[in-house]
Amino acid sequence: MTALPKTCQKKLGLVIDLDTCVGCHACVVNCKEWNTSNYGAPLSDTDAYGANPVGTFLNRVHSYEVTPAEGPAQTVHFPKSCLHCEDAPCVSVCPTGASYKRSEDGIVLVNEDDCMGCGLCAWACPYGARELDALAGVMKKCTLCVDRIYNENIPEEDRVPACVRTCPAGARHFGDLGDPESDVSKLVAARGGVDLMPEMETRPVNKYLPPRKKDELTKGEALAPKSTEPKGFLAWLDKALEAL
């Protein structure tokens, strides 16, 4: 139903470390691979091998450049998928009841059998986390791999979202953000995790860890040069060149 649950027993979500992400897009590929063959309609591509390929993805990696007031600019790779918001506007706008948020774990899902493909939920999401599939005509979004995380038919280490499982840099963490004692909650507290676009009042569950401060060379830290006069071969070369 499109009413949001008053409370959720768990707040399952992702913590994404912008310090660690190397922008390899492995999570994008593994997300597509898993989700095109599991929950709901496949994630279709149009003109996949042609000049203008377009396709449905549930996770995308942007790359930005941040320039501080002083000092060099820095590249930040920025993966983005559904943030499983507590006040998910995408859910309450849905006219058919297809979009819903689960009270047991807070995951926001689309029941494709009810979706009429109006696209209003995608308009309501500030983060671009929902894409209407061009072939199936139904709304697709991150399911937090609901068909992996509780799946007893796969090895235990695989019972995390596909993006988390595949990230070679360890930039993605999965857990219960409603439990202050969970690893992800502690990580968010330690690293000052933030909400995206808080002014949109969606209260996202997923958190982003800003890049750590880079080391800076301060005066006096560098060693003094040991040798001023060239010796050996370089001394000979020096002399020889000067003689020319």
């Binding site: 912008l18 377009v54 820095q74 930040v76 909400d195 995206l196 800003p210």
Partner: peptide, 24 residues
Amino acid sequence: TATGLQGLGSVRQLEPPHSGTNYL
């Protein structure tokens, strides 16, 4: 605010996430 990077400086897009277009 969209990237949560306001504390670090001003942000600009370096590379879009996909070369083609998409639904969004």
